[in-house]
């Protein structure tokens, strides 16, 4: 099996790596780069726990191969906070108890980042559309919904929506 050389920008850092074609993006991030903040829940694309951003779009890291992101940029939960300052979405999850065990949280946060980057004042339907792609077993979603509202307020939402 031929190995592949890839170049990926993750959270602003360029990485060059030689990987087996079958290595998933999730395993690449976690076990090759040590970015273990991206968790793995089902490895068949349903639970949404491994959501990361590839070129700004949220995707399942278990349904992508590392070789497929050659030349692209990836954002993970490790890239959100600036030093000691949490990203407003992270802060909102903390303020509103949007997490309990926290295992699913990075996947939710990354999907929400895509949403709020594109659309600072999403409608309830748009929020649910994004949240519906991930499973949380602890919170019953109540705290997560509160956190999204809080994040929208923090990030200057309430302004008219504008597409990017």
């Amino acid at each position: 099996m031929a190995l592949c050389s890839i170049q990926v920008n993750v959270n602003g850092t360029n990485y060059q790596s030689v990987v087996e074609p079958r290595l998933s993006l999730a395993d690449f991030l976690r076990h090759e780069l040590g970015l273990t903040g991206t968790h793995v829940g089902c490895e068949h694309g349903v639970c949404g726990i491994c959501n990361v951003l590839v070129d700004g779009r949220s995707v399942r890291a278990c349904l992508l191969l590392a070789v497929q992101v050659d030349g692209q940029s990836v954002e993970t939960v490790e890239g959100l906070a600036e030093g000691e300052k949490l990203h407003p979405i992270q802060q909102a999850f903390m303020d509103e108890q949007g997490l309990q065990c926290g295992f699913c949280t990075p996947g939710f946060i990354m999907s929400l980042k895509e949403l709020l980057d594109c659309n600072p004042s999403p409608s309830e339907d748009e929020i649910k559309d994004v949240l519906g792609g991930s499973i949380c077993r602890c919170t019953g979603y109540a705290g997560i919904l509160r956190a999204v509202q809080s994040a929208v307020a923090k990030m200057g939402g309430g302004q008219p929506s504008s597409a990017d």
Partner: peptide, 9 residues
């Protein structure tokens, strides 16, 4: 518990 959980640490 939350800061470490929220930042993937």
């Amino acid at each position: 518990e939350d800061p470490a959980l929220l930042t993937g640490r």
